[in-house]
Structure formats: structure tokens, C-alpha cells
Design a protein around this nucleic acid. Sequence first.
DNA 1: AGATCTACCTGGTTGC
DNA 2: TGCAACCAGGTAGATC
Length: 283
Amino acid sequence: MPELPEVETIARTLEPQVRERVIRAAHVLLPKTMAVGQELFSAVFPARVVGVRRRAKLLLVDIAADGQKTPTHLLAFHLKMTGKLFVHDAATSPHKHTRVMFDLAPEGDIPESRLFFDDVRTFGYCRLMRPEDLDSWPFWANLGPEPLTLTPAEFSRALGTRRGGIKSLLLDQKVIAGIGNIYVDEACFRSGIHPLTGADRLSDLQRAALLQSIQDVLTESIAECGSSIRDYRDANGDAGAFQNLFRVYGRAGQPCMICGTMLEKIIAAARTTVFCPCCQQGS
DNA sequence: AGATCTACCTGGTTGC
DNA sequence: TGCAACCAGGTAGATC
């Protein structure tokens, strides 16, 4: 389930494989995956990849058409649950779950190759757009702040006066960007906050502790190249290792690492939620 | 407006 | 062995 650390890892492993490469053409195998921008193909390609970056859980590939240096367009990928990006050699055929393919021209010693966007559950998408179109894309325009560079005051401002459960607020990409079900549970556990606690009932101290925990789990996970639940892989095909450091996610019924109490599973924000009823009180 | 719920998807797992 | 039921979860959209 690519969340911020996984998308960051994919961006870092993909960039060296596609930077400066020329995308000659794109092939859409599942139309709904490329519902936006397909009509631009003929005008944009061939285009050179000038960079790969991440915003929230979006992976952005900046491309420049017509030999220009500055990006003229970008590919915005949302991997949702099962999206994957790989570069294979040009002879590789699409398989059952391949949704879009990009032909990459040979560059120096690098032979012709192909960028694959595979997605088993087809929730993911890729949009081809101009940079100036981003602001009129509601999802982009409404994204909340990036958590890693957030200050406690900014975090508190982002939570505002809302009274909903803290878990549902943290999952809301308009409040704070990039956090999903795994990291919200891990961060709540580390800061000793019950996931159903009303955000308005968190003290300044608790808010600061929660932000610190969010930044800790995200930073540690990035250092481990993300978490591999089931089938996540980075752009090199390598698994992450942060799943070995989970303290609550997927551990319902097992003892709390701090106090030994049995971890409980509940549904919060319509998501499976695991927490320690002893260490995380105050709902 | 804000909070909550459901649809969208498919493959793997569970249970009979 | 076969097969139905269930589960995973980010986001849009609907409802209250």
C-alpha cells in the first residue's frame, strides 16, 4: 500500500533509471488508468524526462517536449494500493496487470527500454498534464502540507478546531498529505494517543508528540525503503524492510511491545485499526 | 460544514 | 478439491 515512504522510495529508485531518457510513445492498455491527458500524447511525445519527484502519495515525472530544458508537461501517478513502476528491456511484453507502458529511446550505452505501470486492482491512475493545470486539479489544489517539514504550530493549525477522531483527520489528505492506514496506527501508538480521540481534545503537548511520531515513523520507514505488505516493491524490484519494525499494524492479538497488554483491533475511519488499550487511552 | 459511510477493484486467504 | 465469503485500503461522492 504505497504511502509517503513507499512513494518516496519509488521516486528515488526510479529517477536514475529514467532521468534524461526520451519517452518516444505511450501505450494505454486500460483506458480508465489514463483517463486524463491521453489526447495530448501526439503533441507531447517524444519528450525527455527531466526529473522524478513526490508530493503526498503522488509520484510526478517531469518531462520536456521539443528539446526544451524546463518541463513542459508532467506525468502524475497515483499508485493507490497496488500500482507499481518498473523499467524493463524493450522486448518485455505487457502482462495481465500492465495498464500503461512508455517506450524509452536508447541513450548512450543504455539500450531501448520500457517503463511499465502495473496495477492489479486498477485503482491507480496516471495523468498527463501541463504544470499550469495542476492548480485546477482539485485533488492537487486541496492537498494538505507535507508532514516531514511541518512545524508543531503548522501541524496544530492544520488540525484546526475539528472534532473528528484523530485517525480520520490524519488519513484526510486535505489535512495532512501522505499518511495512510499503516503509518497513522504506528504514529498514534508511538505518541500514546487513542486513534478515536477527538482532535480538539489533544493538548499542545500531545499534538507535538504526535507530529514527532509521524515524522519518526516516516523517516525511519524511508531509511528502510518503505514497508512491504504483500507485494509492494520499489522501482528496482526490491522489497522494503520497515514492516519488520511495525509495533501495532498487523499485530492485533499479540502483546504490546511496551506493556504486554494484548493489542486490540477496531474499525476506525472505516479502516482496520490496531492499538494498545493500555498505552493509548483517552478516546 | 464536517463527519461518516459506501463504491470501486482483484487476488489471496479462510472456512465449509 | 471446489467454491463462496471475506478482507485489504485511498479517494470520490453521497448522505446525514
